[in-house]
Lab assay of single mutants.
Amino acid sequence: LKGVVVAGGVLAGAVAVASFFLRNKRR
């Protein structure tokens, strides 16, 4: 169960970083 929580956190972080980079590329 702990691994699932960690994986979810990593996935959420990756999505946040990806969206951040996409926003920067638009400018």
Results as ranks from 00 to 15, higher is better:
2 K>M: 08
15 V>C: 10
20 F>G: 03
23 R>T: 06
3 G>L: 13
9 G>R: 06
16 A>M: 05
17 V>A: 14
11 L>G: 01
23 R>K: 05
9 G>S: 13
21 F>S: 01
20 F>E: 01
22 L>V: 06
14 A>M: 05
20 F>S: 03
26 R>Y: 10
27 R>L: 14
12 A>M: 13
6 V>T: 05
18 A>Q: 02
15 V>K: 04
19 S>E: 07
17 V>F: 14
14 A>S: 06
21 F>R: 05
4 V>M: 01
22 L>I: 10
6 V>H: 14
24 N>G: 11
9 G>N: 05
6 V>Q: 06
10 V>N: 03
9 G>T: 10
2 K>W: 10
7 A>D: 03
25 K>P: 08
9 G>C: 08
2 K>A: 07
18 A>N: 00
11 L>V: 14
5 V>T: 12
17 V>W: 10
3 G>D: 06
18 A>T: 11
27 R>M: 15
9 G>M: 14
7 A>K: 15
26 R>D: 08
15 V>I: 13
9 G>W: 01
25 K>E: 05
16 A>Y: 11
16 A>S: 07
23 R>Q: 05
8 G>E: 04
4 V>W: 11
3 G>K: 11
17 V>T: 03
8 G>D: 03
18 A>D: 00
21 F>G: 01
16 A>E: 02
2 K>H: 06
14 A>E: 00
8 G>Q: 06
25 K>Q: 08
8 G>C: 09
1 L>V: 04
9 G>A: 08
8 G>W: 11
21 F>L: 10
25 K>I: 13
19 S>F: 03
8 G>M: 02
19 S>V: 13
26 R>K: 11
20 F>Q: 04
22 L>A: 05
1 L>N: 04
18 A>Y: 10
11 L>P: 00
27 R>D: 06
15 V>Q: 02
2 K>P: 10
10 V>K: 08
18 A>F: 05
8 G>Y: 15
17 V>C: 08
6 V>M: 11
3 G>I: 15
13 G>I: 07
14 A>F: 09
6 V>I: 11
3 G>S: 06
19 S>K: 13
23 R>D: 01
9 G>H: 02
26 R>T: 11
21 F>Y: 08
6 V>N: 04
26 R>F: 15
25 K>G: 12
19 S>A: 12
12 A>W: 08
8 G>L: 07
22 L>W: 05
2 K>V: 08
21 F>A: 05
7 A>L: 11
10 V>A: 11
15 V>R: 05
15 V>S: 02
19 S>P: 00
24 N>M: 15
24 N>S: 13
4 V>E: 02
1 L>G: 05
1 L>S: 08
3 G>Q: 12
1 L>I: 04
11 L>W: 06
14 A>L: 08
26 R>W: 14
25 K>V: 14
27 R>F: 00
7 A>S: 10
11 L>E: 00
19 S>C: 14
16 A>Q: 07
12 A>F: 13
9 G>K: 07
8 G>K: 01
2 K>F: 09
25 K>C: 12
23 R>P: 01
24 N>F: 09
3 G>P: 12
7 A>V: 14
10 V>L: 15
26 R>V: 15
11 L>Q: 00
17 V>E: 00
15 V>L: 13
15 V>F: 05
13 G>Q: 09
5 V>P: 01
21 F>W: 14
8 G>S: 14
18 A>L: 14
6 V>K: 14
14 A>Q: 04
20 F>L: 11
23 R>C: 09
19 S>W: 15
12 A>Q: 05
15 V>P: 00
19 S>T: 07
5 V>W: 03
27 R>V: 12
2 K>G: 07
6 V>A: 11
24 N>T: 09
8 G>I: 13
12 A>V: 09
5 V>S: 06
3 G>T: 15
22 L>R: 05
13 G>T: 08
7 A>R: 11
21 F>D: 00
16 A>I: 04
19 S>D: 07
24 N>E: 04
10 V>G: 03
24 N>P: 03
27 R>N: 13
17 V>K: 01
13 G>E: 05
7 A>N: 06
16 A>V: 04
11 L>T: 02
19 S>G: 07
26 R>M: 14
22 L>C: 05
16 A>R: 09
22 L>Q: 02
18 A>I: 15
4 V>D: 02
10 V>I: 13
11 L>A: 03
20 F>V: 09
27 R>W: 10
13 G>R: 10
4 V>I: 07
5 V>K: 10
7 A>E: 03
23 R>E: 02
23 R>W: 11
8 G>N: 06
9 G>P: 05
6 V>W: 08
19 S>R: 09
23 R>H: 07
27 R>E: 09
12 A>E: 03
11 L>R: 01
18 A>E: 00
12 A>K: 06
9 G>F: 04
15 V>G: 02
26 R>I: 09
17 V>N: 00
6 V>C: 10
6 V>E: 03
27 R>I: 11
12 A>H: 05
1 L>M: 02
24 N>K: 09
9 G>Y: 04
4 V>Q: 09
26 R>S: 12
22 L>F: 08
2 K>R: 10
7 A>C: 10
11 L>D: 00
2 K>D: 01
10 V>M: 11
22 L>G: 02
7 A>G: 09
22 L>Y: 12
5 V>N: 03
17 V>Q: 01
11 L>S: 01
2 K>I: 07
24 N>C: 12
9 G>V: 09
14 A>W: 09
23 R>N: 06
17 V>S: 01
12 A>T: 13
17 V>D: 00
11 L>I: 05
7 A>Q: 07
23 R>I: 08
2 K>E: 01
22 L>D: 01
15 V>T: 04
26 R>H: 15
10 V>D: 01
1 L>T: 05
15 V>E: 00
2 K>S: 10
21 F>M: 02
7 A>Y: 14
24 N>A: 12
14 A>P: 01
27 R>A: 14
18 A>V: 15
3 G>A: 08
3 G>W: 14
18 A>W: 12
9 G>Q: 10
20 F>P: 00
21 F>N: 00
26 R>L: 08
7 A>P: 04
13 G>V: 08
2 K>Y: 06
17 V>H: 01
6 V>L: 11
24 N>V: 14
13 G>H: 11
3 G>R: 13
1 L>K: 14
25 K>F: 12
25 K>Y: 15
6 V>R: 12
8 G>H: 10
1 L>P: 10
12 A>I: 04
13 G>A: 09
1 L>R: 11
7 A>T: 13
20 F>C: 09
13 G>C: 09
1 L>C: 13
6 V>S: 04
4 V>Y: 15
11 L>K: 01
17 V>M: 08
26 R>E: 10
24 N>L: 12
13 G>W: 11
24 N>H: 15
18 A>S: 03
24 N>D: 04
7 A>W: 06
1 L>W: 12
25 K>M: 11
20 F>D: 00
14 A>K: 03
17 V>I: 10
22 L>N: 02
6 V>Y: 15
19 S>Q: 12
25 K>S: 13
2 K>N: 07
27 R>K: 12
9 G>L: 07
5 V>L: 04
13 G>N: 04
22 L>M: 10
10 V>C: 14
3 G>M: 15
23 R>L: 13
16 A>K: 06
11 L>C: 06
2 K>C: 09
3 G>H: 13
21 F>K: 02
14 A>I: 11
21 F>T: 02
23 R>V: 06
21 F>I: 09
22 L>K: 06
3 G>F: 12
9 G>D: 06
11 L>F: 15
12 A>G: 06
8 G>T: 13
10 V>T: 06
10 V>Y: 02
25 K>D: 08
21 F>E: 00
15 V>W: 12
16 A>L: 03
8 G>P: 04
14 A>N: 01
16 A>F: 09
4 V>R: 13
10 V>E: 00
23 R>S: 07
14 A>Y: 08
12 A>N: 03
17 V>G: 01
7 A>F: 13
17 V>L: 07
21 F>C: 05
26 R>C: 14
16 A>W: 13
13 G>K: 13
4 V>F: 15
15 V>A: 12
12 A>S: 07
22 L>P: 00
18 A>R: 03
10 V>R: 06
14 A>G: 04
11 L>M: 13
2 K>L: 07
19 S>N: 14
21 F>Q: 02
24 N>W: 08
17 V>Y: 08
4 V>G: 04
5 V>Q: 05
8 G>F: 09
26 R>G: 14
4 V>C: 09
27 R>Y: 14
1 L>Q: 01
13 G>Y: 02
8 G>A: 07
16 A>G: 05
25 K>R: 13
24 N>Q: 15
1 L>F: 12
5 V>H: 04
20 F>T: 04
14 A>C: 15
14 A>D: 00
11 L>H: 01
26 R>N: 10
8 G>R: 03
3 G>C: 13
16 A>N: 02
18 A>K: 02
6 V>G: 03
10 V>W: 11
16 A>H: 07
27 R>H: 13
21 F>P: 00
17 V>P: 00
3 G>Y: 15
10 V>S: 03
25 K>T: 14
9 G>E: 06
15 V>H: 05
9 G>I: 07
20 F>K: 03
22 L>S: 03
18 A>H: 03
13 G>L: 08
11 L>Y: 05
5 V>I: 07
19 S>I: 14
23 R>M: 02
27 R>P: 10
24 N>R: 12
7 A>I: 11
12 A>L: 04
27 R>Q: 11
13 G>M: 10
5 V>E: 03
13 G>F: 13
3 G>V: 12
11 L>N: 00
16 A>P: 00
21 F>H: 03
25 K>L: 15
3 G>E: 06
21 F>V: 10
15 V>Y: 13
10 V>Q: 03
20 F>Y: 05
6 V>D: 02
2 K>T: 15
20 F>A: 08
25 K>W: 13
27 R>C: 04
26 R>A: 11
23 R>G: 05
3 G>N: 14
23 R>A: 10
18 A>C: 09
16 A>C: 07
4 V>H: 06
12 A>D: 01
1 L>E: 02
23 R>F: 14
13 G>D: 03
1 L>D: 02
5 V>Y: 00
1 L>A: 08
4 V>K: 14
22 L>H: 04
6 V>P: 01
12 A>R: 08
15 V>M: 09
22 L>E: 01
10 V>P: 02
4 V>S: 10
18 A>P: 00
20 F>H: 04
5 V>F: 08
15 V>D: 00
20 F>W: 09
1 L>H: 11
6 V>F: 02
18 A>M: 15
5 V>G: 07
14 A>R: 05
5 V>A: 12
22 L>T: 03
4 V>A: 14
27 R>G: 12
18 A>G: 03
15 V>N: 00
20 F>R: 05
4 V>L: 12
24 N>I: 12
26 R>Q: 08
26 R>P: 11
13 G>S: 06
12 A>P: 02
16 A>D: 00
14 A>V: 15
19 S>M: 15
19 S>Y: 09
24 N>Y: 12
25 K>A: 12
16 A>T: 06
14 A>T: 07
19 S>H: 12
5 V>R: 07
4 V>T: 10
12 A>C: 09
20 F>I: 10
1 L>Y: 02
5 V>D: 01
7 A>H: 08
12 A>Y: 09
27 R>T: 15
19 S>L: 12
27 R>S: 15
17 V>R: 04
10 V>F: 15
14 A>H: 05
5 V>C: 15
4 V>N: 07
8 G>V: 06
13 G>P: 01
7 A>M: 10
4 V>P: 02
25 K>N: 11
2 K>Q: 07
